[in-house]
Design a protein around this nucleic acid. Structure first.
Length: 271
DNA sequence: AGAAGGACCTGCACGC
DNA sequence: TGCGTGCAGGTCCTTC
């Protein structure tokens, strides 16, 4: 499930391989994955030069000179490069061909929380609703945006309008590192502890980006744009380790539900 | 405004 | 073996 580090890894690799290249052809294989814009408008991307590939929140953004193609990966989305000779994987929904026989392919099995958006600016569509990126938000802004929130702190971290990029994995990991119980209401956490959480988010995300993102042993492993990173790279402290011993204190990790998501925490380390 | 909960979608791990 | 069931979860939408 791609979060900020996975999207960042994909965007960096695609930028390195595709920046400056021209679009030769765009094929939308499944019309309803295009959530913003009309299928006919995609054809107008042909001939445009890809200026830049970057990440915003969990989305990968392709800057095509005054047109922005935004891909939300959702639960199971993959964006990768392939040769035109290679058959599409199942559930391939969008293919953008570039000069030099390179195809950018978007595939997604479960199409949950995912989609493609064709925007005129990066202030539109799903990007308009995002708070500051979690990897660069400064501590004061972080505190300010959480002030007065009565939701569980984990629900706040998952709320992309508060800060963008943190999903279930990195929320659990950051809260563990900061020693905060995920169910704790945000407005009842001391500022010093929230500052520690800010620091934890920064370090967890930075480490994950350095590792090239997380790969889980589930049905939809994360892999880089060329498929080269499909192995486990990030050691999770709590995520997915329900019932196993805490790596710090040894007591059994507990599981609960916060904002509808499975949440794992250490009852002793996280108060 | 902010919070809470449901819908969406598919593949896989289960249990019988 | 072969079915049915439950589970995973990010975003958007509706309701309160």
């Amino acid at each position: 499930m791609p979060e900020l580090p996975e999207a960042e890894t994909i965007a960096r690799a695609l930028h390195a391989d595709l920046a400056g290249k021209r679009v030769v052809r765009v094929r939308l294989l499944r019309r309803d994955v295009l959530k913003t814009g009309r299928p006919g408008q995609l054809a107008a991307l042909t001939g445009r030069r890809l200026a830049r590939v970057f990440r915003r929140g969990k989305a990968v953004v392709f800057d095509l000179s005054d047109r922005f193609l935004v891909i939300q990966l959702g639960m199971s989305g993959r964006v990768y490069l392939d040769s035109p000779r290679v058959p599409f994987v199942p559930h391939t929904h969008l293919v953008v061909s570039f000069a030099g026989a390179l195809e950018l392919r978007y595939a997604n099995t479960r199409r949950i929380a995912s989609g493609v958006h064709l925007l005129g600016s990066i202030d539109q569509g799903p990007l308009a609703r995002l708070g500051p990126d979690a990897d660069t938000i400064d501590p004061d802004e972080f505190l300010r945006r959480l002030a007065g929130r009565v939701s569980p702190i984990k629900a706040c971290l998952l709320n992309q309008a508060i800060l963008a990029g943190v999903g279930n994995i990195y929320a659990d990991e950051s809260l563990f590192r900061a020693g905060i119980r995920p169910t704790r209401r945000a407005n009842r956490i001391p500022k010093a502890k929230l500052a520690r959480l800010h620091q934890a988010i920064q370090s967890v995300l930075a480490e994950a980006v350095r590792a090239g993102g997380s790969t889980l042993g589930d049905a939809t492993p994360f892999a880089g744009p060329r498929g080269e990173m499909g192995y486990f790279t990030h050691v999770h402290q709590v995520y997915g380790r329900y019932g196993e011993p805490c790596r710090v204190c040894g007591c059994s990790l507990r599981r609960t539900l916060v904002a509808g998501r499975t949440t794992t925490y250490c009852p002793r380390c996280q108060r």
